[in-house]
C-alpha cells in the first residue's frame, strides 16, 4: 500500500493545478472545471485519511460522499448562472462579467 504522504502529495499537486486554472482561465466553463478539480483533490484527501489516517475509519468516506453531493449541486447552480449570463451578455468570458466589481 502506498503511504498516505503520496496520496496527499498528489492531492496537493492537483489542487494547485486547479487553483492556477481557476485564477488564469478566461472561459467561465473552464473556471468551473478547475474548481471541480480542486474539490476532487480535497475529496482524495478525505478518502486517503479514512483509509490510512491516524484514527482511520469509514467516517471519511461519509464526508467524501457529502462533499460529492454538494459539488453536484454547485455545478448545477453554476451552470444555470452561466446559461443566464450567456443569455444576457452573449459571452462566456469572465472579463465581461464585472457588474458587481468595485
Amino acid at each position: 500500500m502506498a503511504p498516505i504522504g503520496s496520496f496527499l502529495a498528489l492531492a496537493a499537486i492537483l489542487f494547485c493545478i486547479g487553483l492556477y486554472g481557476a485564477l488564469t482561465k478566461r472561459n467561465i466553463i473552464i473556471v468551473l472545471l478547475s474548481i471541480e478539480l480542486m474539490l476532487n483533490a480535497a475529496n482524495l484527501n478525505l478518502i486517503a485519511f479514512s483509509r490510512l489516517g491516524v484514527s482511520a475509519n469509514v467516517a471519511g468516506q461519509v464526508f467524501g460522499l457529502f462533499s460529492m453531493t454538494v459539488a453536484a449541486a454547485e455545478v448545477a447552480v453554476g451552470l444555470a448562472i452561466l446559461i443566464a449570463l450567456y443569455r444576457n451578455r452573449n459571452s462566456t468570458d469572465v472579463r465581461d462579467m464585472n457588474l458587481m466589481k468595485w
Binding site: 500500500m1 499537486i13 494547485c16 490510512l52 491516524v54 469509514v58
Partner: peptide, 29 residues
C-alpha cells in the same frame, strides 16, 4: 497566479514531507 499556486504547492509538499505519518496498514479499518 502561477507563482502563488507554485508557492502554495511547495509549502503543502514540504509540510507533507516533514510530517511523521502513521505507517500504511495493509488492512483497511
Amino acid at each position: 497566479a502561477g507563482l502563488g499556486a507554485a508557492a502554495l504547492g511547495a509549502v503543502m509538499l514540504w509540510a507533507i514531507r516533514t510530517t511523521a505519518w502513521p505507517p500504511a496498514s495493509a488492512q483497511p479499518p
